[in-house]
Deep mutational scan, measured.
Amino acid sequence: MSGIALSRLAQERKAWRKDHPFGFVAVPTKNPDGTMNLMNWECAIPGKKGTPWEGGLFKLRMLFKDDYPSSPPKCKFEPPLFHPNVYPSGTVCLSILEEDKDWRPAITIKQILLGIQELLNEPNIQDPAQAEAYTIYCQNRVEYEKRVRAQAKKFAPS
């Protein structure tokens, strides 16, 4: 494992614990031996107030490669969400998460999670990743928002 990646992720964890947006979660997972795995984080993004996503808490896994922060983490909703920019596998399609697009090593975990929260309610229809959600979003916004509200209710924190 890269010392650069681990040191950056340790800084990220410290900064997150000191200050993070209300309702968001970002925690490194534990290895079988109980030690912390900084390369694999369990996160959760709350649906934004005043949107059909409100009330939901959407679980996301963030996986970092050894060359982080040169390369972005892979962000994957578990379980996958109904959304035009979420692949059926759950992987998020967002330009700041793509090395050859808008990724920059200075982007923080907090910025990534806030960017994904923004994307939930403002899909990028130029870059669809899920045919069904994309089609319904474009053709029947009322039905799309109904499905999103049902999903938010399903993923409401207990």
Results as ranks from 00 to 15, higher is better:
residue 154 K to Q: 13
residue 135 T to S: 11
residue 83 H to I: 03
residue 76 K to T: 15
residue 121 N to L: 05
residue 23 G to M: 02
residue 142 V to N: 15
residue 114 L to S: 12
residue 47 G to D: 05
residue 105 P to W: 03
residue 69 P to M: 01
residue 5 A to Q: 13
residue 60 L to D: 02
residue 37 N to M: 11
residue 72 P to S: 10
residue 8 R to N: 09
residue 56 G to S: 02
residue 10 A to S: 10
residue 53 W to Q: 02
residue 70 S to C: 13
residue 84 P to R: 02
residue 144 Y to P: 04
residue 119 L to M: 10
residue 32 P to K: 15
residue 63 L to Y: 09
residue 121 N to I: 09
residue 155 F to P: 02
residue 31 N to S: 11
residue 152 A to P: 01
residue 90 G to H: 01
residue 124 N to T: 02
residue 137 Y to K: 06
residue 94 L to G: 00
residue 125 I to W: 10
residue 121 N to W: 09
residue 31 N to H: 11
residue 153 K to T: 08
residue 61 R to A: 10
residue 52 P to E: 14
residue 157 P to W: 13
residue 45 I to A: 03
residue 136 I to Y: 11
residue 112 I to W: 03
residue 119 L to R: 01
residue 18 K to V: 12
residue 93 C to T: 00
residue 28 P to L: 07
residue 43 C to M: 09
residue 11 Q to P: 11
residue 84 P to E: 02
residue 85 N to G: 01
residue 92 V to G: 01
residue 93 C to L: 04
residue 96 I to N: 02
residue 112 I to C: 12
residue 84 P to F: 02
residue 123 P to N: 01
residue 143 E to S: 13
residue 141 R to T: 12
residue 44 A to G: 14
residue 90 G to L: 02
residue 156 A to S: 10
residue 64 F to D: 05
residue 29 T to W: 04
residue 79 P to H: 15
residue 80 P to D: 12
residue 29 T to P: 04
residue 86 V to W: 03
residue 22 F to T: 01
residue 101 K to M: 08
residue 107 I to Q: 11
residue 36 M to N: 00
residue 22 F to E: 01
residue 137 Y to G: 02
residue 133 A to H: 04
residue 129 A to S: 05
residue 79 P to W: 14
residue 9 L to M: 05
residue 154 K to W: 06
residue 139 Q to K: 10
residue 72 P to E: 09
residue 148 V to K: 01
residue 86 V to E: 00
residue 54 E to I: 08
residue 120 L to I: 07
residue 131 A to K: 10
residue 84 P to G: 03
residue 109 I to V: 12
residue 39 M to V: 13
residue 117 Q to V: 06
residue 85 N to F: 09
residue 144 Y to Q: 02
residue 89 S to M: 15
residue 79 P to E: 14
residue 52 P to W: 11
residue 19 D to I: 04
residue 149 R to A: 06
residue 35 T to I: 02
residue 92 V to D: 06
residue 82 F to K: 00
residue 62 M to D: 05
residue 38 L to Y: 13
residue 66 D to I: 10
residue 152 A to E: 03
residue 59 K to T: 12
residue 48 K to Q: 09
residue 95 S to C: 06
residue 54 E to K: 08
residue 21 P to K: 06
residue 70 S to I: 14
residue 148 V to Y: 03
residue 25 V to N: 04
residue 80 P to A: 14
residue 121 N to E: 12
residue 76 K to A: 15
residue 84 P to W: 03
residue 147 R to Q: 12
residue 156 A to N: 05
residue 82 F to C: 04
residue 129 A to F: 00
residue 32 P to L: 14
residue 7 S to K: 07
residue 78 E to P: 03
residue 109 I to D: 03
residue 86 V to Q: 06
residue 4 I to Q: 11
residue 112 I to T: 15
residue 72 P to V: 05
residue 154 K to F: 04
residue 32 P to M: 14
residue 29 T to H: 12
residue 150 A to H: 11
residue 27 V to E: 04
residue 126 Q to H: 10
residue 35 T to C: 02
residue 2 S to Q: 15
residue 138 C to V: 08
residue 75 C to R: 04
residue 46 P to C: 10
residue 153 K to M: 13
residue 40 N to L: 13
residue 28 P to S: 05
residue 42 E to N: 05
residue 42 E to I: 03
residue 97 L to Q: 05
residue 31 N to F: 09
residue 134 Y to N: 04
residue 45 I to Y: 06
residue 86 V to G: 01
residue 74 K to C: 15
residue 95 S to G: 02
residue 94 L to W: 05
residue 98 E to W: 10
residue 116 I to F: 07
residue 48 K to Y: 02
residue 50 G to K: 14
residue 51 T to L: 01
residue 3 G to R: 06
residue 122 E to D: 13
residue 29 T to Y: 15
residue 131 A to F: 03
residue 108 T to E: 14
residue 66 D to T: 13
residue 73 P to A: 12
residue 49 K to C: 08
residue 21 P to D: 04
residue 4 I to D: 15
residue 100 D to N: 14
residue 146 K to L: 10
residue 115 G to S: 01
residue 11 Q to G: 08
residue 7 S to Y: 07
residue 156 A to V: 08
residue 62 M to C: 08
residue 118 E to V: 12
residue 32 P to C: 09
residue 50 G to Q: 10
residue 108 T to H: 14
residue 27 V to M: 14
residue 75 C to A: 10
residue 49 K to H: 14
residue 82 F to R: 00
residue 15 A to L: 12
residue 58 F to H: 03
residue 99 E to D: 15
residue 43 C to W: 06
residue 76 K to D: 15
residue 33 D to M: 05
residue 66 D to G: 11
residue 129 A to I: 01
residue 42 E to H: 07
residue 74 K to W: 04
residue 66 D to Q: 11
residue 152 A to W: 04
residue 18 K to I: 04
residue 44 A to D: 07
residue 118 E to N: 12
residue 119 L to Q: 02
residue 36 M to K: 07
residue 143 E to N: 12
residue 42 E to V: 13
residue 125 I to G: 02
residue 18 K to E: 05
residue 94 L to H: 00
residue 1 M to H: 06
residue 97 L to D: 07
residue 84 P to H: 00
residue 106 A to W: 02
residue 1 M to G: 07
residue 111 Q to M: 13
residue 105 P to V: 08
residue 5 A to S: 13
residue 154 K to A: 12
residue 79 P to A: 15
residue 42 E to L: 06
residue 128 P to Y: 02
residue 59 K to V: 12
residue 43 C to H: 01
residue 96 I to K: 04
residue 65 K to R: 15
residue 3 G to V: 10
residue 141 R to H: 13
residue 127 D to C: 00
residue 51 T to N: 02
residue 1 M to Q: 06
residue 83 H to M: 02
residue 29 T to G: 12
residue 102 D to G: 15
residue 118 E to G: 10
residue 44 A to N: 08
residue 158 S to H: 11
